[in-house]
Each structure stands twice: as C-alpha cells, then as structure tokens.
Amino acid sequence: MSQTKERLTKKELRQIWARWGFTHLSSMSYEKLQAHAWAYSYIPFAKKYYSDDPEAMRRLLVRQSMFYNTEPQTGQIINGIVASLEEEIAMGGDVPEEMPINIKATLMGPLAGIGDSIIQGIIVPILLSIGMGLASGGSVVGPLFYIVSYALIGPTISYLCFHNGYKLGINAIDVIIGENAKRITDAFNILGVMVVGGLAAGNVALTTKLEIPMGDELSSLQALFDSNFPKILPLIMVLLSWWMISKKRMSATKIIIVLTVISAVGVVLGVF
C-alpha cells in the first residue's frame, strides 16, 4: 500500500480543477445543485489512492456527494483547500474525514456572497456595458471584446483560486473569513454597491407621458423630472423591487408579475 502514497502530481491537481470547472452545474437540481460535480472530480483521485481499499473509496465518494452550492469560479478556492485535505487523508495524515465536509459547508455561503457580487455584480455588467458600447451600429467588435475579455478573466480567476486554495490548505480559511479578508471583501462590496447604483441609473428605462399644468400651459412631467431629478422613475422601480425582495421576501416570479401589472396599468391609463 505504501508505494501508492505519493502526493498529487501537478497534472492530477489540474485534473481535479478542470473536472469541476467543466461540470460544476452539469446535473444541477434544486435538491443537490453542485453536489455531484465533487464526486465526479474525485474519480481519478479515488482510483489513485483507494483502488485497494473499497471502504475508504466509498467514504470518499459519499462525502463528496453532499449538497453543495457556491459561486463556481471564485469558489474554486474551496476545491483547492479540500484537495489538500483529501490528499492528507489519503496519505494517512491526521486530518479527520469530517474536515472536508465541514470546510465545504462553512465556506460555501461566504464565498457565494463575495463571488456573486464580484462576478455577477461587478465584472460581468462592466464588461457587458463596454461591449454594448462597442457594438452600437452592429459592430462585431462589441461581442468579440466581451467574449475575449471574459474568456480570459473567468478561467483565470478559477485557476488562481484553486491553486492558492491548495497551496494554503487549511490556512486559506483565514484568508477567506479572517479579519483582514473582511476588510478587503467589504471594500470590494462597496465598489459593487456603487456599480449597482450606476446600473440602476443606466439600464432601467421608464418615462411618463403625463402632462401637468404649469401656469396656463400644460407641460411635460418628464421634462420636469429630467431637469430636477433625472432617472427618478427607474430609481423608484429599483427601490420598489428591492423592497419586495428584501422586506416582503417575494420570489422573483411574483415580482415579475407585479412589474408586468404596473406596466400594463400604466399603459392603459396613459401614464407610461
């Protein structure tokens, strides 16, 4: 048994990274989400270390089939940490077998939060805004810019997160949820909040057709808004939606229905 107890090679590590990278959402359901991508990415690992110990292999596969959900690109840092732990376990180190389970359960929430706000809240909308600007008039430069830039950024984030997670191992937890990490993520979060504010101003469109009496003449209410508080109607719709999500705990589908009703009523009454 001892002759197989060598560490993971670079190639095998890259294999674990790539198997997760390609298939993280392959079999996603509401019940398990990304769970089975873990078991799938540990197939070569299981063959390498546990081919002569079926009971240990079974424990590995079962503990790597549990419910899991995070932002899958930044979340690769967890895959890196767990790879270093599983390696220790396979080599007979003193890491308990519950450790990978606990690490996954503890870190997936915080990383989903920071990852979603960085990827979906900052990087994707910014690149899309630039790409849309370049695409005006139907130019291919716009979509090509977006394709190339995200094709570089997304996998790079994924690769760096995995390898740093593996290198730091258990110490990476400090990097993710330690005091210093909290300052960095808080600062990134503020960047995200400001960008979202800009998105609200730039990407929601709603104007009113109402006219209000100004002295003797009717004048456009929208012109009044534009000169005093531009984009006030989009801002109201955004704040209303936010209120429905965070205070009323309404589902996205219900809010879509509310927005549709508001639009329809507004059109019928001639407001919008």
């Binding site: 989009p234 936010w242 508001i262």
Partner: peptide
Amino acid sequence: VVTDTISVLGGVLPALGIAMLMNIV
C-alpha cells in the same frame, strides 16, 4: 396595448435584476 406594455416592461425588467444584486451587496 399589449405591445406597448411589453415595451414598457422591457425597460422596467432590469430593475428586478438590479434589486437582486442589491439584495446581495
């Protein structure tokens, strides 16, 4: 009326996605 509603809705719908982002950040 329906096409007008859909075109207004097209302008308003991004508000939901932005609100979901706000809910995260």
